[in-house]
Design a protein around this nucleic acid. Structure first.
Lengths: 304, 304
DNA sequence: GGATATCGTTCTAAATACAGAACGATGGTT
DNA sequence: AACCATCGTTCTGTATTTAGAACGATATCC
């Protein structure tokens, strides 16, 4: 069985001539003539009626062409499948970020990235306590910061600003009525982020560049945002959290925002990656994906 | 694009080894090794992981194999289609027979022959008046006869005997009650076959070699059996007809058989064809088909 | 009617693939 | 541990296919 006969034959049929097929394939017409002749000899029947000016398929030729065309299409698909497979992303990406970013931001976008790239493996270090911007073994880091990060030889890519708001349970909000200024927070218990002592006041920015600093009595503190959010939902006090971590709770009526015209800060979120050595393609692909998808989710503009 | 690479590769996969594939294909393993190596080189990726004892497909290899296997199946189908097409019957067969044979016998079997042989064309000369056994331009003839046909240089092939019975309408049968002998037909009007005057009596053969000749007063005559059958169904008289022309009418209760133990003759049906020159294959094929299918339909043994 | 362009087919020196031998590697047997 | 059988890969003199030229046939143009 010589399958290449079929290849030439199909081209002769589709180009309606040996010379045209030869030009298209960039080969001498003598080769095509020989191949088609050999094909007809091996089958013991004529596939083409032709002279120097006319050409038509025999019935046998039409039958053969239909099957052979399908075979060639399968072969093209075979090569395409291999080339696509060869160029597909694969390998591991190690990502470091806070628990909040992992659960409330990445959790909404990474499944899609992984679905599109089945041979990429993600390793996420989710922590509430980073001493390094990015340590060894980490490909990408997502960090929130108020000031410019120190020059570290890393590549910084800004993702977005993330506003923090004040939230509490609807029952407390109802009990104290609508607050009109930060001074109205006086006396309300606070839920503090961070497990070490300190951070007992809210730094607020309001309309027309106004600033306010409001101390609070800490009822509970934790470095885990979910724990603090659960406490606020239970009516234990007021908490300042990034807006994207509470979007669903506010929509569901489990939390209420206090002082809607005041922010409890607006830190910037950046993506950090190594730059001194070339990154594997899957790392670059994930970085591009996150910079494209995260802004709408984390700055509070995007909806559910 | 070299399709033969795929051919060897598919066999290697299915036989799980180069040596096994080479043995199956009856070619040296060096050729297969070279072909698969060239295939991997042209695709720029490995399809098989192998050493001298183990073999497994890579992911790319699995993808390529699925498509290539389908392509090879198409190529097998292409060759099969051409070989079947090459061996298929084609051409015209001209057949001569009576209208009754055409309508009541051939009509039940020829559709199947034509379905199996879509490139055979049938031309049927159906007539009630043949002066020749078989004239020029006719490939096959079906003729009924009582005596041996004259020696004509034609090939005779006996199909079967066809009994003729007496039929009339159920109303007449009821009116005269069950007849017990041919003498009881006296006074019943007859419907005669043939349009020329003559043939005004029934020649009957009964049990134990008994014979009887019963004259009848002819109410109507025709050379068309259907016309006579319609007249009998309408109660105009008694008619003698071949059993196979009335099978459905008797089953449906439109006709009744008279004197069930008596035949109105039992002529032989033969197939005539030219023998001096070789017949085209489609003529021989139809002759064999008719000799196989017609007996059960025409001798009254076969059912509906 | 003659000249020209293009077709498919055939021929032949040159290029390439091939069959079979030889090699290194692996696993089973003793 | 040594030996043997079988595997896939590589090498090379031989066999086959190839590219390009030449040919006969056909249709178009002048």
């Amino acid at each position: 069985m010589d399958l290449n006969h079929a290849y030439y034959f199909v081209h002769v049929v589709e180009k309606q001539g040996f010379s045209a097929a030869a030009r298209t394939l960039g080969i001498p017409k003598s080769r095509i003539s020989r191949q088609v002749k050999n094909l007809e000899a091996s089958l013991g029947t004529r596939l083409l009626n032709r002279d120097s000016r006319h050409m038509s398929l025999t019935e046998a030729g039409e039958a053969y062409y239909r099957h052979a065309k399908r075979a060639l299409d399968c072969m093209v698909a075979a090569e395409t499948a291999v080339r696509r497979d060869k160029d597909a992303l694969e390998g591991t990406v190690t990502l470091s970020c806070s628990v909040g970013v992992a659960q409330f931001a990445l959790g909404r976008v990474l499944p899609r990235f992984l679905a599109d790239n089945p041979r990429v493996i993600l390793q996420i270090q989710a922590s509430n306590d980073f001493s390094d911007l990015i340590s060894d073994g980490i490909d990408l880091a997502i960090r929130g910061h108020f000031k410019l990060l120190p020059d570290s030889g890393l590549i910084h890519r800004r993702i977005t600003e993330v506003p923090w708001h004040l939230f509490t349970s609807p029952s407390i909000a109802q009990q104290f009525g609508p607050l009109s200024s930060p001074a109205d927070l006086d006396g309300l218990p606070g839920l503090a982020l961070g497990w070490r002592p300190g951070g007992n006041s809210w730094s607020l920015q309001g309309p027309d560049g106004a600033n306010a600093s409001v101390p609070f009595a800490t009822r509970m503190r934790s470095d885990d945002m979910v724990t603090l959010k659960q406490a606020a939902t239970a009516g234990l006090g007021v908490v300042a959290l990034p807006v994207y971590t509470c979007t669903e709770d506010v929509a569901a009526g489990r939390l209420s925002r206090l002082l809607p015209e005041w922010n409890a800060g607006s830190p910037e979120i950046s993506l950090l990656m190594h730059g001194k050595r070339g990154n594997p393609p899957q790392v670059d692909a994930l970085a591009a994906f996150l910079r494209r998808e995260l802004p709408d989710i984390m700055n509070g503009v995007g909806g559910l």
